[in-house]
Computed example of a mutant assay.
Amino acid sequence: MSGDSVMQWGDHNIGIVKSEGAISPQAALEQLVGAALQLRERVSASECAVIDSSVEALRAGGDQDPGRLRRALASIAGVAALVGDVGVPVVGAANRLMEAAGLR
């Protein structure tokens, strides 16, 4: 059996709230950059270059073309996906940033 077992009594119960809530684009960017920099220590030099250029593009942010930002996110997530389990936090952070920035 999987899932939550919940018992509630009384009026005006809302149940279990499981969402983490909305995250600001800036907070999502900081999470991604932190995760990417940790991943950088575990990948090859060519993959480091991809991470570095992508982080630079994301940090520039601002008035950039949304397509450029999406490509930077896809590049970081691509490297993270290729390295396996150690890249999972980066993929999750990239997805959160895409969501927070309205790119999805």
Results as ranks from 00 to 15, higher is better:
Met1Arg: 07
Met1Leu: 08
Ser2Asp: 09
Gly3Lys: 00
Asp4Asn: 15
Asp4Tyr: 10
Ser5Thr: 13
Val6Arg: 12
Gln8Val: 10
Gln8His: 06
Trp9Glu: 14
Gly10Trp: 02
Asp11Lys: 14
His12Met: 07
Val17Leu: 12
Lys18His: 09
Ser19Val: 10
Glu20Asn: 13
Gly21Pro: 06
Ala22Tyr: 06
Ala22Thr: 11
Ala22Phe: 06
Ile23Phe: 01
Ile23Arg: 08
Ser24Thr: 15
Ser24Asn: 07
Ser24Gly: 12
Pro25Val: 09
Pro25Arg: 10
Gln26Pro: 06
Ala27Asn: 12
Ala28Pro: 04
Leu29Glu: 04
Leu29Pro: 02
Leu29Asp: 03
Leu29Arg: 11
Glu30Lys: 11
Gln31Gly: 13
Gln31Met: 12
Leu32Pro: 04
Leu32Ile: 07
Gly34Asp: 07
Ala36Glu: 00
Leu37Gln: 11
Leu37Lys: 13
Gln38Pro: 02
Gln38Ile: 04
Leu39Tyr: 02
Glu41Gln: 12
Arg42Leu: 09
Arg42Gln: 12
Ser44Pro: 02
Ser44His: 03
Ala45Arg: 11
Ala45Ser: 14
Ser46Asp: 14
Ser46Pro: 03
Glu47Arg: 12
Cys48Pro: 00
Cys48Arg: 15
Cys48Gln: 15
Cys48Glu: 14
Ala49Glu: 15
Ser54Val: 06
Ser54Gln: 08
Ala57Gly: 04
Arg59Pro: 02
Arg59Asp: 03
Ala60His: 13
Gly62Glu: 11
Gln64Leu: 14
Gln64Thr: 12
Asp65Gly: 04
Pro66Arg: 15
Arg68Glu: 14
Leu69Glu: 09
Arg70Asn: 12
Arg70Ala: 12
Arg71Gly: 06
Leu73Gly: 02
Leu73Gln: 04
Ser75His: 11
Ile76Cys: 08
Ile76Phe: 08
Ile76Trp: 04
Ala81Lys: 13
Val83Lys: 02
Val83Met: 01
Val83Tyr: 00
Val86Glu: 11
Gly87Met: 02
Gly87Thr: 00
Val88Gln: 03
Pro89Ile: 03
Pro89Arg: 01
Pro89Met: 03
Val90Gln: 05
Val90Arg: 00
Val90Met: 04
Val90Leu: 08
Gly92Trp: 02
Ala93Met: 02
Ala93Leu: 04
Ala93Lys: 02
Ala93Ser: 15
Ala94Pro: 05
Ala94Arg: 05
Ala94Val: 10
Leu97Tyr: 14
Leu97His: 06
Leu97Asp: 04
Leu97Pro: 02
Met98Asp: 10
Ala100Thr: 06
Ala100Glu: 04
Ala100Trp: 06
Ala101Phe: 04
Gly102Ser: 09
Leu103His: 13
Leu103Phe: 15
Arg104Trp: 08
